[in-house]
């Protein structure tokens, strides 16, 4: 693609043609504040934060939607732009409830950060609208008053997951997200992942922690062999939530319903932590040595009595490739049978 040369805030920048002004600025390390723009989504252009001044244009333009042109001269920061951005934020805050003290997102909320950074003052709410809080999945709660209608969730559902389960209805201050095709929802939580505010919160982790209190631990999802990267929110040695940075791993922030919401088993009291052996009809806790010894002796006995093909092995998709390799090796070399199968076989 052709290269385009332009000037942003006095810096000469060369970017591939067809990029947006926002991308060009970011590649040069110049920050333009944004709310609706997301790395994985096409430009949305709903938040009115990324206005920049371009020579030759009378009105400020949205940086996320304007394509670069040769010899373009862009100003990203001026008093006028600062006050425009502040006014945009003030408008977004007009219907925002006084929820920060009880909101799970407070502390890592983009809206909150920007409102503080731009020093927004004197917002007097006057929007009294009734909203519908129904959401297609019971794992996520929708708080319509907190919503700034940035359309990130709707775009993510349509673009990343190709589902289109949710959409926006209403206009202006009464606009809200609603389940357009609830039957299509997969409960994947992609909308939750991209939400910049606390409008979408996870029902399992609500009120359990604060962003600055919990420890974030990077790990790999154990549900299948995909190896999705995820971040567990740990508080007092207990997993209380899940965040996914959208730059790492194969999944780039996406997860399936199991990966994103199925973390409560980790601290479940019903989880087996010691091997059990059925003695006299009841399962009793025992040591690994005794359990494995029993398995080995029984395998030997069966093999001797009924032949090696009387044993079959089924492996799990939750194991890694290496573990599955070892398992088939064990079945073939130690037991001596080719009766090996796997739960994810199609």
């Amino acid at each position: 693609m052709e290269e385009v040369k332009l000037i942003i805030d006095g810096n000469n920048i060369t970017v591939p043609g067809g990029s947006t002004v926002l991308e060009a600025a970011r590649s040069a390390g110049i920050r333009i504040p944004t709310l609706c723009c997301h790395e994985r989504l096409e430009p949305i252009g709903s938040c009115k934060m990324c206005f920049v001044q371009i020579n030759g244009c009378a009105e400020p333009q949205q940086a996320c939607k304007t394509r670069v042109q040769d010899t373009m001269q862009v100003t990203t920061d001026s008093e006028q732009l600062f006050s425009m951005r502040r006014e945009s934020l003030r408008e977004l805050l007009l219907r925002h409830p006084l929820d920060c003290p009880v909101c799970d997102k407070a502390g890592e909320c983009l809206l909150q950060d920007l409102a503080y950074e731009f020093g927004v003052t004197d917002v007097h709410q006057h929007v009294n609208a009734t909203f519908e809080t129904f959401y297609p999945t019971s794992l996520i709660r929708y708080w319509p008053e907190r919503c700034i209608v940035c359309k990130r969730c709707v775009t993510a559902c349509a673009e990343i997951k190709q589902l289109g389960a949710i959409d926006i209805k209403g206009e202006g201050p009464t606009a809200q997200v609603y389940p357009a095709k609830p039957e299509r929802c997969e409960s994947c939580g992609e909308c939750l992942q991209v939400c910049p505010t606390g409008a979408l919160t996870e029902n399992l982790s609500r009120y359990k922690t604060r962003p600055w209190l919990s420890k974030r631990v990077m790990t790999t999802c154990t549900y299948c062999g995909c190896g999705c990267q995820m971040q567990l929110n740990v508080m007092n040695n207990r997993v209380v939530g899940m965040t996914v940075p959208n730059v790492f791993g194969v999944n780039k922030g996406s997860l399936c319903v199991k990966g994103r919401f199925g973390y409560e088993f980790i601290n479940s009291p019903e989880r087996l932590k010691k091997p059990l052996i059925r003695k006299n009809g009841t399962l009793q806790e025992t040591t690994w040595e005794e359990a494995l010894g029993l398995v080995a002796s029984q395998f030997s006995r069966i093999k001797k009595e009924y032949g090696r093909d009387s044993i079959a092995g089924i492996s799990s998709a939750r194991c890694t490739n290496e573990e599955n390799y070892l398992f088939q090796k064990f079945m073939r070399a130690v037991i001596g049978t080719n009766n090996v199968d796997h739960c994810a076989r199609l």
Binding site: L93, P97, L98, C100, P101, A115, G119, T121, V123, W212
Partner: peptide
């Protein structure tokens, strides 16, 4: 008179979301 430094009055916090946000950010961060 600097919204990034000065804590807003507690009376404003119960009415004004921007004051609440500022108080939250000034206290927590």
């Amino acid at each position: 008179d600097n919204p990034l430094v000065t804590n807003p009055a507690i009376e404003d916090v119960t009415e004004d979301i921007s004051a609440l946000i500022r108080r939250f950010k000034i206290q927590c961060e």
